[in-house]
C-alpha cells in the first residue's frame, strides 16, 4: 500500500524539473496554513475552536449557492456566499441556545450539520452544472495551483491567481495583527481590563469571527471544508506547547506552517494522496512529537527537582 520511498523521485526531481511550480505549490500551502494558523491562534485562545469547526462546515451551502447563481468560480460571489452562511450559523446557534434549553455545543452541532447537509445535497444534485464536486469539498486542490490563470500587476507577473489571493489574505492578516496587536492581546486575555481601557471586547469578538469566516472561505478551495479545522487548530495548539507569549506563539505558528507545507508537499509526492491531507498528517505528527517531548521534559524536570530535594535533605 505504501509506495517505496525514492529520494530522487520524491525530493530531487520535483525541484529539478519544475522548481517554479513546486515553489508555487509549497507557497500556497504555506499561505493557507499560515493564514489559518494566525487567525486560529486567537480562535484557540478565545476558546472558540468549535465555532471554527461549525463555520467551516456550514459555509458549504453558501459557496454552493454562489456557484449555482453565478455559474462560475467567481471568488467574490463565493466570498459573499460563504461569509453570509458563516454569519447565519453564528446567529442561528445563538438563537437556538437562547430560546430553548439546548446547550451551545448541541446547538452548534445541529446547525452546522444541517447547513452541511444542504450543501452536500446541492452539490450532488447539480454536479453536472458546476465544476464543484464532493472531492473538492473533501480534499481541496493545492496541487493544481500552477495551472491557475496567472495574475499580472502593472505588467509584472505575480503568479497564479489563487496563490496571489491567498497571499494577500495572509499579508492582510499579518498587517491587521500588527496594527491591532495590543488590542487583540488585551481583549483575548483580560476582558475586564479591555473594558476599562475603553476597548469593546464585543467588537473584537465579532471582528475575529468575521476574519475567521473570510480565511475559511479563502482556504476552502485549497484544503476543503473539513481539513480547514485541522489547519486552524493544529498550528496554534503546537505553538502553545512551545511558547508562552502571544507574539512567540504567532511566530511559531508561521514557522510551523512553512514546515507543514514543505514536508507535506513531499509526503504527498511520495504517497500520491492529497496535499491537504498530508499537511494535516505532518501537522499532527509534529504536534505529537512536541507533546511527547514536553511530557518527557516535565517528567525530567520533576525528577531533577526530586533529586535536588533529596540532596538538600541529605545535606541537612
Amino acid at each position: 500500500m505504501i509506495p517505496d520511498f525514492n529520494w530522487d523521485a520524491v525530493i530531487y526531481e520535483t525541484w529539478q524539473f519544475d522548481p517554479w511550480g513546486t515553489f508555487q505549490i509549497i507557497l500556497m500551502g504555506f499561505f493557507v496554513a499560515g493564514s489559518c494558523g494566525l487567525i486560529g491562534s486567537f480562535v484557540v485562545l478565545r476558546r472558540m475552536a468549535l465555532m471554527g469547526d461549525a463555520i467551516s462546515h456550514s459555509l458549504l451551502p453558501g459557496i454552493a449557492i454562489a456557484y449555482l447563481i453565478t455559474g462560475t468560480r467567481d471568488a467574490s460571489a463565493m466570498f459573499i456566499g460563504g461569509v453570509i452562511a458563516g454569519l447565519l450559523t453564528v446567529l442561528l446557534v445563538e438563537a437556538i441556545h437562547r430560546n430553548s434549553r439546548v446547550k451551545v455545543d448541541a446547538a452548534m452541532g445541529i446547525t452546522f450539520s444541517t447547513f452541511f447537509a444542504v450543501g452536500v445535497i446541492l452539490i450532488t444534485a447539480f454536479a453536472d452544472h458546476v465544476d464543484l464536486d464532493a472531492d473538492c469539498v473533501l480534499y481541496g486542490e493545492i496541487i493544481l495551483v500552477p495551472f491557475d490563470a496567472p495574475v499580472r500587476w502593472f505588467g509584472v507577473p505575480l503568479g497564479p491567481e489563487s496563490v496571489v489571493q491567498m497571499g494577500s489574505v495572509f499579508l492582510g492578516l499579518l498587517v491587521l495583527i500588527m496594527l491591532f496587536y495590543k488590542e487583540l492581546l488585551v481583549t483575548t486575555f483580560d476582558v475586564g481590563l479591555a473594558r476599562s481601557l475603553g476597548l469593546s471586547p464585543q467588537v473584537f469578538h465579532y471582528g475575529t469571527m468575521g476574519v475567521l469566516s473570510l480565511v475559511i472561505v479563502s482556504a476552502f478551495e485549497a484544503v476543503g471544508a473539513i481539513l480547514v479545522i485541522a489547519m486552524l487548530i493544529l498550528p496554534p495548539a503546537t505553538a502553545l506547547l512551545l511558547a508562552r507569549r502571544l507574539s512567540h506563539v504567532l511566530v511559531w505558528t508561521v514557522v510551523l506552517s512553512a514546515l507543514y507545507a514543505i514536508i507535506g508537499y513531499h509526503l504527498d509526492v511520495w504517497l500520491n494522496a492529497t496535499m491537504a491531507g498530508t499537511m494535516v498528517v505532518v501537522a499532527l505528527l509534529i504536534f505529537c512529537v512536541v507533546w511527547m517531548s514536553t511530557l518527557v521534559c516535565r517528567r525530567w524536570g520533576q525528577h531533577a527537582a526530586m533529586e535536588a530535594m533529596e540532596s538538600v535533605e541529605t545535606l541537612t
Binding site: A49, L227, I229, A230, A273, A276
Partner: peptide, 16 residues
C-alpha cells in the same frame, strides 16, 4: 481545542 485537534488531525490521516 483538543476536540477540534483530534477531529481535524485524525480526519486528515483518514483522508490520506
Amino acid at each position: 481545542t483538543s476536540l477540534g485537534l483530534v477531529l481535524g488531525g485524525f480526519y486528515g490521516i483518514g483522508i490520506v
